[in-house]
Design a protein around this nucleic acid. Structure first.
Lengths: 233, 233
DNA sequence: ATTCTAATATGATATAAGTCATATTATAAG
DNA sequence: CTTATAATATGACTTATATCATATTAGAAT
């Protein structure tokens, strides 16, 4: 849709971090031709649980949560997708309805890539297929870890782990504040707890000198302390 | 190792249920030649968390739990692998240490398939690769569901769901008893709860006419009741 | 049978964490 | 600037579930 220099996937830096890097020049050209860029405002959804996806989305900017509504009406965030990640792959590959919703946690720029291109590349380029498979294997391992954390760690440990995760995956600025700013409610949905519990624990962590904040921005003060807390008791 | 008629993978029925069905006749012949069958007694481990797997295991008989030790020393079962399932694939594909341990929940027969054959087939047979990818995509979806259940459902709901899962995946005999008999402790590890809590809830379910037992064998009496319980309140 | 050990059962208690209520503070909208 | 609305904070209370203790029962070993 857009036609700036960034619209050529061949030159897109973001691609280096996902399975698209295993595509050939010609395949990338096709992707470039058929892809559409779009902006998604904070809070808007990219796709919904139960939808049939017509393609995958490559995150160029911003962060999306992948979440699922539970029977009791609460939203559980299963994964956060940052710049460079491709979302919707699983449903396209399995040819199933999406099991997750994708919602922008801040303003985003995403590229939509029609599933036909993904499927045909999977059928013709074994390197690409293997790369996708490796990514999926990695995602599966991470999901296993989340299962164990959910069932075996206390809410306090999970909140501590969540902040370490945010630092490791999204980084911090020169003053030690996390680049990804989430509301308490968003964090609660990642951790799988009530918003009030999340707020209480964050307050406690601030009092204990583990976390700091400057307005909405949160920062880690004592990383080792957080890690100790997240691991054992 | 063994040489009965069953040792020819080409004829093995079990194969129909896993990704090996996408292999060609010649590939299966190679698998037949290099595979080894072995029996694993109840309680023995097939592989341990942190091990480098030299291949994958195809379950011919019995059931294995795939579990991970949490920091507090408790064992969390992430998945149960029944007849026909291939375990260890994820680690072989990602070329990583295994993130899970596999332990026999009853006496098992498994075939070991060296990773070289798996890797070379992945590199040469796109059908096989796609089949493995589809399986992995399915596993990932299931893992997402487990994450949501773990964080959003009560222990009671999860116990109810576990019995429904056992019925759906392992079946029941003519008298309505589950074919897979697990100890309370095993069930507790699947559900992610304390053994005592698990025992208590099962007792309650028996009193309420949801479950029955005959010695160690457990059976579902009121499936709808269990389902209602597992879903909402 | 008899003994030993593991599995199941149940009570008592402590505690983590959810829920409901109500402030207080930010941020957006007019 | 003022008002409205959303986000954060904290208190009070309830409940689910873990933990510790102790029976009871079943299964294995001798």
């Amino acid at each position: 849709m857009e036609n700036g220099i960034e619209s050529q996937c061949e030159q897109c830096i973001v691609r280096q971090f996902n399975s698209l890097r295993a595509m050939s020049k010609e395949e990338l050209k096709k992707v470039s031709q058929s892809k559409t860029s779009k902006t998604v405002k904070k809070g808007e959804t990219i796709f919904e649980e139960g939808e049939t996806l017509k393609g995958v989305f490559c995150v160029r900017n911003g962060v999306s949560k992948l979440s699922k509504l539970s029977a009791n009406g609460k939203d559980q965030t299963v994964k956060l997708a940052a710049k460079g990640m491709v979302i919707g792959q699983r449903s396209v590959i399995a040819e199933e309805l999406s099991n997750l919703s994708a919602t922008a946690l801040n303003d985003m720029e995403v590229c939509f890539i029609p599933k036909e291109i993904i499927v045909s590349t999977l059928n013709t380029n074994p390197n690409f297929t293997m790369e996708v498979l490796r990514h999926m294997a990695h995602d599966l391992k991470e999901a296993d870890d989340v299962i164990v954390n959910m069932s075996q760690k206390t809410v306090k440990q999970r909140v501590a782990a969540a902040f370490l995760y945010l630092k490791n995956n999204f980084g911090e600025d020169e003053n030690g504040f996390l680049l990804l700013t989430l509301s308490r409610d968003d964090i609660a949905n990642v951790v799988g707890t009530a918003t009030e519990s999340c707020i209480r624990i964050i307050s406690e962590f601030k009092k204990k000198g583990l976390l700091k904040n400057y307005g909405k921005k949160m920062g880690i003060v004592n990383e080792k302390g957080l890690r100790d807390l997240a691991e054992g008791y």
